[in-house]
């Protein structure tokens, strides 16, 4: 009976049975392509995500804050590397993936195209941006592709420090002067809506979602995750003593959820398509870092080659 099933059917059966798919297993081309696109975009986001925060490492207000921020940015680099490795198990080359990022062919999370104007932004990024990322990533720990799911587990373990680190910055500032409190509120005002946009277009406008859900690359829909994030964030804002810039935000007794205003999808698409406040700056910084590091990569390879020859001539 099973012999009459097509490869696709058998694959779907494995997915439905919650079996993990591993690198060398048969998989439909679409599954492979979708994963490479999603995992590499995710990796790019981690790498580009270092830039807005790196901006504040030298200006952190104390050594303690500086150490924590450095550790966080180093984690983002690590997360990018776990994810690139996962994408490579599907046959994508590292060089090709980086090329797609540097030429603008591949996307990364739009949130990193917003500027970090004050120290409070670093707090708001940790609290809201990392908070939204965690919401997404926890769901991805159960993704059907083994290497991706395992990378996500590692990442989630490390992310919660990021969010606490950010929230702690804001808590401290909220105990400070009026100017500091105002700075926190201003940062929250600017990061709230872009954070909600991080979950992507509404389910009705998300063309790839149905297939990704069927393949269990995605476990929860964009709107479900966004709602969870809002429900989680409102009480956290109350404890902090800040408000979100949404007059329509209120608790709905019937649904048991916080309802919120309409997201400005025009802004979302504008930033996705390259016209956000920092798109050019981010990409230019990435390309510059890559190009200026070229001689280091070449030198390391030349050195390794020389050592290899030296060792083999000693053996002979």
């Amino acid at each position: 009976m099973t012999n009459t099933l097509s490869l696709e059917d058998r694959f779907q059966q494995r997915i439905d049975n919650e079996e993990k798919i591993e690198a060398k297993d048969w998989m439909p081309d679409g599954y492979r392509k979708t994963l490479i696109r999603q995992i590499s975009q995710h990796a790019h986001s981690e790498i580009v995500g270092m830039l807005p925060e790196g901006n504040w490492i030298t200006r952190a207000p104390s050594l303690k804050r500086k150490l924590a921020l450095l550790a966080k940015v180093q984690d983002e680099a690590g997360h990018g590397l776990y994810l690139y490795s996962a994408a490579e198990t599907l046959g994508a080359g590292r060089d090709e993936l980086l090329h797609q990022l540097h030429t603008g062919k591949a996307k990364y999370s739009s949130i990193f195209n917003y500027p970090t104007l004050t120290w409070a932004d670093i707090g708001a990024v940790g609290w809201l941006v990392d908070g939204a990322a965690i919401m997404n990533q926890v769901a991805l720990c159960r993704a059907s592709y083994g290497p991706y799911a395992r990378a996500m587990v590692r990442i989630c373990k490390e992310e919660s420090f990021h969010q606490r680190q950010g929230y702690d910055i804001l808590l401290t500032m909220m105990k400070g002067t009026d100017a500091q409190k105002k700075m926190v509120q201003d940062a929250v005002n600017r990061w709230w809506w872009p954070s909600l946009m991080m979950f992507g277009p509404s389910d009705i406008d998300s063309p790839n979602s149905a297939e990704s859900m069927k393949w269990k690359i995605k476990r929860l829909s964009n709107d479900e995750l966004r709602q969870r994030f809002v429900d989680m964030s409102v009480p956290q804002a109350e404890i902090l003593g800040v408000t979100f810039p949404d007059p329509e935000l209120k608790y709905n007794e019937v649904t048991g959820h916080y309802q919120f205003g309409v997201i400005d999808w025009e802004e979302f698409w504008r930033v996705v398509n390259g016209n956000g406040p920092c798109n050019e700056e981010r990409l230019a910084a990435r390309v510059q870092a890559h190009e200026e590091g070229a001689w280091v990569r070449d030198a390391a390879l030349a050195y390794a080659e020389k050592q290899k020859q030296r060792n083999s001539s000693q053996v002979a």
Binding site: A71, Q74, G78, L81, Y82, R154, E158, R297
Partner: peptide, 24 residues
């Protein structure tokens, strides 16, 4: 097995593995 990484040689792979996979 925890993952993979690129390095010019085994010595560098060891150093990178330390930074990428054992920060905690």
């Amino acid at each position: 097995h925890v993952g993979s990484l690129h390095a010019a040689d085994a010595h560098m792979a060891m150093q990178n593995a330390r930074d990428v996979y054992t920060r905690r």
